[in-house]
Design a protein around this nucleic acid. Sequence first.
DNA 1: TTGTATGCGTTATCAG
DNA 2: CTGATAACGCATACAA
Lengths: 344, 344
Amino acid sequence: MKFEAVTIKDIAKALGLSTSTVSRALRDSYEISPETKKLVLEYAEKINYHPNPIALSLKERRSRTIGVMVCEIANSYFSQVINGIESIAQLHGYNVIISQSRDSAGRELQNLQYLTSRSVDGLIISVSSETKDFSYLQELHDRGMPIVFFDRIVDAIETHKVITDNFKGAYDATQHLAQMGYKRIAAICNTITLSIGKERLAGYKAALKDAGLDYKEEMVRTCEHGGMLASELEEAVASLFAASPAPDAIFAAADKLTTGCLQALRNRGLSVPGDVAMVGFSNSELTGLLNPAMSVIKQPAFEMGELATDLLLELIESKRPVTDYQTRVLGTEIIIRDSCPPVI
Amino acid sequence: MKFEAVTIKDIAKALGLSTSTVSRALRDSYEISPETKKLVLEYAEKINYHPNPIALSLKERRSRTIGVMVCEIANSYFSQVINGIESIAQLHGYNVIISQSRDSAGRELQNLQYLTSRSVDGLIISVSSETKDFSYLQELHDRGMPIVFFDRIVDAIETHKVITDNFKGAYDATQHLAQMGYKRIAAICNTITLSIGKERLAGYKAALKDAGLDYKEEMVRTCEHGGMLASELEEAVASLFAASPAPDAIFAAADKLTTGCLQALRNRGLSVPGDVAMVGFSNSELTGLLNPAMSVIKQPAFEMGELATDLLLELIESKRPVTDYQTRVLGTEIIIRDSCPPVI
DNA sequence: TTGTATGCGTTATCAG
DNA sequence: CTGATAACGCATACAA
């Protein structure tokens, strides 16, 4: 007992027609008589015919499938982005294949090769924080594969990119802490090999400066693995509080870092904002319930997914080289959950 | 400029061989001379040949792709399950296509038809709470499509199922509230058209009974849309607190209901556990930081995804009818975050 | 208006 | 050991 699908051939045989006639009738071609059309369509409906998309893909050299590469699905931010991607893809009759790098450059490369050998029509990618060699992506792009980067983009590759205003998000967060009166504001960041790491660190620095606070390197901790390893955060927090004037506030520069930091603080018996204040990037729906623990910077994740997909589909459907590639910057939102006047 | 893949034909032409020889050499067939093999393999490597999986799919009548249907990706529980699914699939060289029903029966049917129109080898499904007509799924199953249900299963369809011990989870939650001394324990549930709705309601009832508390129908609210609509929760909470003896505790029977309920309570200015205690199902990583707001029931989501995929792949690879289908029940975990002694 | 032949990339079956 | 050919399901250029 197997799942046997009905093909165009079955219809042709049953109706005493040729496959091409059936094919054309189904596609409502002008060169088929109304009667034949009706006959075919009704019979197709009756036996529940559906065209085999694989055969179509082979013929049309397109799979109507887009590949998505993120470091982790089970992360509110990424799952919200995927949600957005899926909605747009669905709208245009595209399937979405999802792959996780788990922030390992090796896995990322392997999955990428797999995805592209699986004939996806295009890729939406947020690169792993471990990745330093972008030659495979570059080659893919050079060979004409439509690619849209989001969040963790590759600066060097000239294609569409969708990011949030990382500088401003970090700036707002830090400024907010400064306005609350905190003086020793630490930062927990991603590596600056990632553009998001760089920009958010810059936003943090700028806000410190504008608030008249000194930037001190020893107040910044970098997490190589983006907080995927709990130990990273434990160490970062431990070393921050080992310093003689311990920080009175922390800015966490990414979702994973925010939650990991909260957890690490809790493990050390430190409360937020009792012992140390905190503002961080976070897209979890539950931060809304953490009140009054902290304010958060929220990224328009769903919209980013939608936008990235729109751009990718445009790239896919107009098969021309990307000369007019663009970087779209979406604003972040700061959600204030403490007594400070909102930042404009 | 298009993304042109190199085919077996290109290799054959370049090397002055036939396509069949090349094909066999690549598959390391015994009937090819070592020299030819070496020649072909080296050249293939050099020009970066990868077989076209679509052509393979057409030939082998299998896509090495599994379809996943959930109501919403951006939900901690489901994204954790998908994480598990993806790991196992990846391990076996399968791709994962994800589809969201957004808890609409119509969308679910439409996406299901799309997925199954021949491009997936099997399905992992958690049905929408709106779905009442399972005839399409039944037909799919009858026609031999491998299906594994998880979480929200369809009792009537005889195939593998993976669920958590919903009864026990609900029982533990309710018992915990009872042990804390609460007497008027309300419940916010999914519809009992869903097995999970039925079982969790039963667990709630049983725990009330064992604690010597009366079950009162007016203390139970049902959310048709599983909490997808914020208004559902607003109404549920409003009507619960409109009753003359308002509840002193709430058991929320699903992730979405837990967060929605917390939000609704907050909107009404009620604090947890100050004004009303609460225990609910929740798989968000952030509930761990909500301390001491409430204890939660956590499902082994990742493991469920892994298990469901293992079962599905078994079904797919051994193409026999499912006679020995089974329902695997995984235990839930109660995470205590208040002063009550842990439930055994 | 309808039918025939061909090709998309691959492998299996036959011949040589 | 290697090559020609058919087939997977569909669409289309070309015939009729």
